[in-house]
């Protein structure tokens, strides 16, 4: 059946509104879209790493989560959900449970690219039937916008500040999606909640209903850390995609496939310009840094096209 937002938007929510994430935050949009991909008759158990999502959606005695939910620490959402899944397998074998339950872990980029990378890698390698979703907002937002290995080159954060000598973060953004693809797990995808949510919804569905581990890396902008006006969420995501800063693709059984090819590649400066975290690049003296970012984006895009056999 062809995707229609009109239909999927009617699927009951599994994350209640009224949580405390900021207006214009990409993360809850990501979470709601991913959870909509679970068949309504299936139950799920969800784990979350410490981070904005967790501290804003589960404050005692309230919870936004309709499914069973567990948070234990920052670096171990994958290990925690792997334990849940292991118990499920054991209880099913012993006839104590017979229904279909889906297992999903959410982690921020800090909890996934950095401190939780080992736990994620281990859980994926062991082959647990889990879906790990990184909501990537490119910094440690919960503790006040510190840089992570996902923070892009020249972004201004509180631990990679722009100053007289430096122009924000001096290192590139780590390519986690490729690292996960190298794990040779059944399904890996890069996505973003955009427009009618088709891309993220369909990838989530594939991930959740894959027989084995799956990983989704989902760009989820943060208006506080990126410094954009809250209504501009969709515009920013659109520019990230169309500038090829954040290409949408999937890797299924080792096969790379581009899921969206921009009609016209937008210059990166259009994307950077909208965000306060890059404003220091636009003072007239730092043009070469924008060029440098453009070159990196272009070369990564070319490499991806080759992998997708699209070039």
């Amino acid at each position: 059946m062809a995707y229609r937002f009109k239909d999927t938007s009617k699927i009951p929510e599994r994350l209640s509104g009224g949580h405390r994430m900021c207006a214009g935050c990409g993360a809850p949009v990501t979470v709601r879209t991913v959870l909509r991909a679970i068949e309504p008759e299936h139950r799920a158990v969800i784990s979350s790493a410490t981070g904005c999502l967790e501290v804003s959606t589960c404050i005692y005695p309230y919870t936004s989560w309709h499914d069973s939910f567990i948070h234990s620490a920052f670096e171990n959402a994958a290990a925690t959900i792997s334990g849940v899944e292991a118990a499920y397998e054991a209880l099913k074998r012993r006839g104590k449970i017979d229904e279909e339950v889906k297992f999903i872990a959410f982690g921020g980029d800090g909890g996934t690219y950095d401190i939780g990378l080992q736990s994620l890698s281990g859980a994926m390698e062991r082959g647990h039937k889990i879906t790990y979703v990184c909501y990537d907002n490119e910094a440690y937002m919960n503790t006040g916008i510190q840089r992570s290995s996902s923070t892009p080159l020249y972004a201004n954060t509180t631990t990679s500040p722009a100053g007289q000598q430096r122009f924000g973060k001096v290192q590139f953004k780590k390519d986690l999606t490729m690292i996960m693809a190298a794990h040779d797990i059944p399904y890996v995808a890069q996505s973003a909640p955009y427009r009618n949510m088709k891309d993220l919804y369909e990838k989530s569905k594939k991930a959740i209903y894959t027989d084995g581990p799956a990983f989704l890396n989902v760009l989820s902008p943060c208006p506080r850390g990126w410094r954009y006006d809250t209504p501009k969420l969709m515009e920013i995501i659109g520019l990230a995609i169309d500038s090829c800063v954040w290409p949408l693709y999937e890797v299924e059984g080792g096969k790379f496939r581009l899921t969206h090819r921009p009609k016209e590649k937008v210059p990166v400066r259009e994307y950077l310009k909208m965000q306060g975290r890059f404003s220091h690049l636009f003072n007239g003296e730092n043009e070469e840094h924008i060029e440098e970012i453009q070159k990196i984006v272009d070369s990564r895009w070319e490499r991806l096209l080759e992998l997708c056999e699209e070039s």
């Binding site: 567990i70 334990g83 281990g122």
Partner: peptide
């Protein structure tokens, strides 16, 4: 892949 994950998985499993 580590004891940190051992205890984390134990937590997930017992909680499950």
């Amino acid at each position: 892949e580590s004891e940190h994950s051992a205890m984390s998985a134990c937590i997930g499993s017992q909680a499950a």
